[in-house]
């Protein structure tokens, strides 16, 4: 009896020591989970999730303060990836935060622009170039399509232009050939 208790206690102490040692030995700096979540988020910095950009949203998810389905630009696929990472069930996108849209970039009608710089201040990724009383223009390659520049514009000269599919951007579609499609069966 005593021997058994001693053995169990010994094992407990040994495992405790091992755990303690590994907690020190394998300590990870920073918040790796938030990093990983941030890597999945689309970095549009649009704030549709209700946070001030992707990183704060990632941190909120990591702390368990925000749900994973608040990011419309990430779409259902983004939700699925987050669910995979966090080991939770994927859920449908929360439509109150907006619906996914085709990827677009902002376009400034340069005839109408009055050079007020309000959009420049709103752009989260500094993708608008221009100066006060100078015409502004969007650096299309750096625009994330967040639409944050639309509300401040006093003359409504900014429109969102969907990115059209052209040859260099064309991609192969998922082949639709399996017999399953014939019947609309739900079992995958």
């Amino acid at each position: 009896m005593l021997a058994a208790i001693l053995v169990m206690a010994g094992i407990a102490v040994a495992i405790g020591l091992a755990l303690g040692w590994s907690a020190i030995r394998f300590k990870v700096e920073g918040n790796p989970l938030a990093e990983k979540i941030d890597a999945i988020l689309p970095q549009t910095q649009c704030g549709q999730c209700g946070f001030l950009g992707c990183r704060p949203y990632a941190e909120a998810i990591a702390k368990g303060e925000a749900d994973i389905n608040l990011c419309p630009p990430g779409g259902e696929e983004g939700v699925k990836k987050l669910a995979d990472l966090l080991g939770v069930e994927p859920k449908p996108l929360d439509e109150t935060h907006g619906a996914p849209k085709p990827k677009s970039v902002a376009f400034i009608d340069e005839q109408t622009c009055i050079g007020c710089t309000l959009c420049i201040q709103a752009c989260p990724v500094d993708a608008i170039s221009g100066a006060a009383k100078q015409m502004h223009t969007i650096i299309a390659a750096e625009c994330t399509g967040c639409e944050l520049c639309l509300p401040p514009c006093p003359v409504d000269c900014i429109t969102m232009v969907p990115i059209a599919e052209d040859l260099p951007h064309w991609k192969w579609k998922h082949p639709v050939v399996m017999l399953k499609q014939v019947s609309g069966d739900s079992s995958a």
Binding site: L179, K180, V182, D185, S187
Partner: peptide, 9 residues
Amino acid sequence: ARGYPAKPF
């Protein structure tokens, strides 16, 4: 029952 076409299978 599973909604597959019977003939090819």
